[in-house]
Simulated scan of single mutants.
Amino acid sequence: MTNKNEHYVTEHVKVKDVDTVEQAEIHEEHIVHTEPAFNKAKFAYERRNRTAEMRQQVTTFAIMIFLTFIAFAMVAAGLDKAIVLPILILLAFIQVILQFFYFMHMKHDGHDVPKLFMLSGIFIAFSFVVTALYLVWLGDPLK
Rank of each mutant, 00 (worst) to 15 (best):
G78P: 01
D80N: 11
D80W: 03
D80P: 05
D80R: 06
D80Y: 04
A82T: 02
A82Q: 01
A82K: 01
I83Y: 03
I83C: 00
I83V: 12
I83H: 01
V84F: 10
V84Y: 05
V84Q: 09
L85R: 12
L85E: 14
P86Q: 08
P86T: 05
P86R: 04
P86S: 10
I87A: 12
I87N: 06
I87D: 05
L88G: 08
I89L: 14
L90P: 00
L90R: 10
L90A: 15
L91R: 00
L91V: 05
A92P: 04
F93V: 12
F93G: 15
F93Q: 08
I94A: 15
I94Q: 10
I94M: 11
I94P: 07
I94F: 11
I94G: 08
Q95W: 08
Q95R: 15
Q95G: 13
Q95N: 15
V96S: 14
V96K: 15
V96Y: 15
V96L: 15
I97F: 13
I97D: 11
I97G: 04
I97V: 15
L98G: 09
L98I: 12
L98T: 11
Q99N: 13
Q99Y: 07
Q99M: 15
F100W: 13
F100D: 15
F100G: 13
F101A: 02
F101I: 09
F101S: 05
F101P: 00
Y102C: 02
F103M: 09
F103K: 08
M104L: 13
M104I: 05
M104S: 09
H105N: 14
H105C: 07
M106Y: 04
M106S: 06
M106D: 01
M106E: 04
M106H: 05
K107A: 12
K107L: 09
H108D: 14
H108W: 08
H108R: 13
H108C: 05
G110R: 05
G110T: 03
H111V: 09
H111I: 05
H111E: 07
H111L: 08
H111D: 04
D112C: 00
V113N: 03
V113S: 01
V113Y: 02
V113K: 08
P114F: 01
P114S: 02
P114C: 01
P114A: 02
P114I: 06
P114D: 02
K115S: 03
K115V: 02
K115C: 05
K115W: 04
L116E: 07
L116H: 04
L116T: 10
L116D: 04
F117W: 11
F117K: 12
M118G: 12
M118T: 09
M118D: 10
M118W: 13
L119C: 11
L119P: 00
L119T: 05
S120P: 02
S120L: 13
S120K: 06
S120D: 11
S120A: 14
G121Q: 07
G121A: 13
G121D: 10
G121N: 10
